[in-house]
Design a protein around this nucleic acid. Structure first.
Lengths: 150, 150
DNA sequence: GGTAAAATGGGTAATTGTGGGGAGTAGTGG
DNA sequence: CCACTACTCCCCACAATTACCCATTTTACC
């Protein structure tokens, strides 16, 4: 039976979690299919949160850099930074991932954290930063909602 | 069962390591599959770091020189330089590689070093130089990230 | 309320990184 | 051809980190 060749994952919703003393964070169970799921963890270049994506989205992001309007030289540099910041992680038997120290620092993670679905990838925030970012975005969201007559 | 014919290796992430008095450096365990992995070590021609690649990437790099727009004469010279600078190394039983003296000098390695994943190959930097180079690239990376709406 | 699944915490075993002693090998010069 | 030296690799030992496992607690769903 030729079933779907791994249906493209889609992440949505917001989930509060905790990160423990060993820097482990439990991925929402709805987002982890089988055993030993594999993700790439990359700090967002500007805003202080972590982007987490499966392999195919990782490579498709590389392609987007490749297709950008920058010069060939700039694109190579950008991709280098992108690769060097990307750490591959596997879920353990309890569905948790281990966040590298440098990335914990980059996103200021400690205690309460938030998983946020973002389509083909998801995000990991410190609760505080997420609250702040949400406050700003909500403003914009409301304006746009009015604009389209939601 | 026709499984993938040895999935091409992919290196990503950044790992801090030490180089000891015997010029041995432990390759990140995630990057070494079996026993006695084999790599080619070549100093980067301009920037002062070492490129490390498995055999297939080594040969594919030779091809890229071959396909460059230089004259036949120039290409022969370039490939000569490339081959003469490339040292083959094997991991020892503890997963370490021995860096030739000349290459240690070329990359100014001593004490703290950094392994950087770069797709089908990886890089070996002195910690100091890496910090300096990263500062510059990060600038470009951020600009491109905005460009593609990361 | 009861059952199952999910999330969290921590103990323990296995793996990884680091350092150094010493045997085997190859290169050097007499 | 033989010593002597320099180097490389193997081994062991230790420390630190990671992954596995099990035990509670919490949440979700009948």
């Amino acid at each position: 039976m030729p079933q779907e060749p791994t249906a493209p994952p889609f992440y949505s919703g917001t989930f509060e979690r905790a990160i423990d003393a060993k820097n482990r964070a439990a991925v929402p169970s709805a987002w982890v299919k089988g055993e030993g799921a594999e993700f790439f963890v990359i700090p967002h270049p500007q805003e202080g949160y972590l982007m987490i994506m499966p392999q195919e989205e990782f490579h498709s992001t590389e392609q987007r850099i490749q297709n950008s309007s920058a010069t060939a030289q700039e694109k190579r540099q950008a991709i280098r930074q992108f690769f060097s910041a990307a750490h591959k992680v596997l879920t353990d038997k309890q569905g948790r991932i281990l966040i590298p120290d440098s990335h914990v620092a980059a996103a200021a993670l400690s205690g309460e954290i938030v998983f946020v679905g973002a389509g083909r990838r998801f995000e990991l925030w410190s609760k505080d930063r997420h609250a702040a970012a949400t406050a700003v975005n909500d403003e914009i969201y409301k304006r746009v909602a009015v604009d389209i007559g939601l």
